[in-house]
Design a protein around this nucleic acid. Sequence first.
RNA 1: GAUCUCGUAGCUCAGCUGGUAGAGCAAUACACUUUUAAUGUAUGGGCCCUGGGUUCGAGCCCCAGCGGGAUCACCA
Length: 570
Amino acid sequence: MIQNLSDEEVVRRNALQKLREKGIEPFPAAEYVVNNYSKDILANYEEGKEVVVAGRLMNMRVMGKASFADLHDSKGKIQIYIASDNICPGEDKSYYNEVVRHLLHFGDFIGVKGTLFTTRMGEISIQVSELTVLAKSLKPLPVVKTDKEGNIYDAFTDPELRYRMRYVDLVVNEKVKETFITRTKIVNAMRDFFNSYGYLEVDTPVLQAIPGGASARPFITHHNALDVPMYLRIANELYLKRLIVGGFEGVYEFSRNFRNEGMDRTHNPEFTVMEIYVAYKDYNWMMDFTEAMIQHVCEKALGTTSVPFGDKVIDFKTPFRRLSMTDAIIEYTGFDITGKSEKELFDFCKSIGIDVNESMGKGKLIDEIFGAKCEGNFIQPTFITDYPVEMSPLCKRHRNNPELTERFELMINGKELANAYSELNDPIDQRGRFEEQMSLQERGDDEAMFIDQDFLRALEYGMPPTSGMGIGVDRLVMLLTNNATIQEVLFFPQMRPEKFATGPDLKEYEAAGIAPEWIEHIVKAGYDTLDKLREAKPTSVHQNLNAYRKKNKLDIPAMQLADIESWKLG
RNA sequence: GAUCUCGUAGCUCAGCUGGUAGAGCAAUACACUUUUAAUGUAUGGGCCCUGGGUUCGAGCCCCAGCGGGAUCACCA
């Protein structure tokens, strides 16, 4: 296949060739042993110390017989100084003049050995005595420059290019790397917190026969050997509860979930939820546990509990505010949902302009009121408690009110971040709730849950009282890294698949009797389908091709009109 | 899925009431042994997303499509 190369790509490929001609392998196999990193060198500067570091060559500044460049390694960057006399101590300066000045390009991986010194301008640098090409970069990276004040010029900002080519984004945009490092710190802090309680990290199936534990449209696939449909999990909740049935005190999992629904700046088809289940606890305990965990995460990953987000500052210091859903609705609408009938709730929704329809049960109506009037107001971390029973089919009924459940959601910045229950462990009640979901489904609620008979069987063997909590990891990372879109916290967010030009079928050209050495050039000259050749007049093809040959100084025989007329173009 | 909006050089972007395509950086060449957004001089580089249409003439106007982004809808 013919690749259309830009001038710069041609230059780099030529350089690659010239390096090989000089006996320098641009992609060497051998280990390159480094003894230092940029960051550590800058932190522990020692004049004259010999160091070996490796990284990407960036921002090269050639000044005649000496050159400066930045070397970016995994921990940061350091300036290198390559002087002709240092790198070529003898008479022969050709390595500097030819290789360093003309065959290296920004983006190349190199290793350097040299001694530390400080320039007149006071910058710690490596005076290079030995340079090794480790990998040639054949495509030019976007050139982003930063001045002393930290102003960035020509930033690589196109979201499409950044997400499709995250590898480039990471090289060129320093902050992106920081976001992902923070993401891992957040996850590690959560893991440490749970482990400190002795809870067990587990793995449960991603490929499931029944997509349970949540209400969402699943991705469907097929298992050939069993010849059954399978689903990518939408949640792992029911599996973790089975493990509590099995006798573990506490289990947790960072669960990659998949939902076949819309994509926007807070939804990606695959996303990560941390779920934890702890036996003998209730949702009050879980609230204390959750806020302590989040404060711990902030302290460990960010070193502070006061976190800027957009134009707000969110304070993660415990305790968080706690408010029942009933009180939240009173607070923002003045309406008390206590004891109201479905009809009364329906009418109230209509009166405040909420779109309602016949498929909505009581729980759904209350959820709509909360979503429309309350949710967005909770900027600082707030636990909303005691949801209507219809909305929470896996949650235990409230100990004081059978119409409510022992459930809380943690709201931050007007959005739900975590969700927790005193888990329903009464198998008879659970079966009834699933049946209610079925009838909701029949009324047209396509979010209602599937029944998982094996899960019910597990409950019948007995599950201790348990509290469970799930927290959206991506959204937590967004909050803590001040990113408004989920794409910024996922290395490879889902994108519509990219279409690559497949190029013409060169075998067709060969079959037509076109000289092989000409085919590539004929395509590049614009005749990228046989149809185009067929439709063009042979005389004009003849002229164009020879003009192309002249322009590109091709070292092949000129095209003859007779050759063109002899082509079998069908 | 709906509406709005964007697609021009490797990157970031200009492009007037429609008149044969521009800058900065990057590249190439030369000069320059402590520069740092290095500098100076010169040079090359474009399927203006794709396909139709209107027009004497389209990067620009119209239609359709493709790919982004934003808003909305949907979304435990």
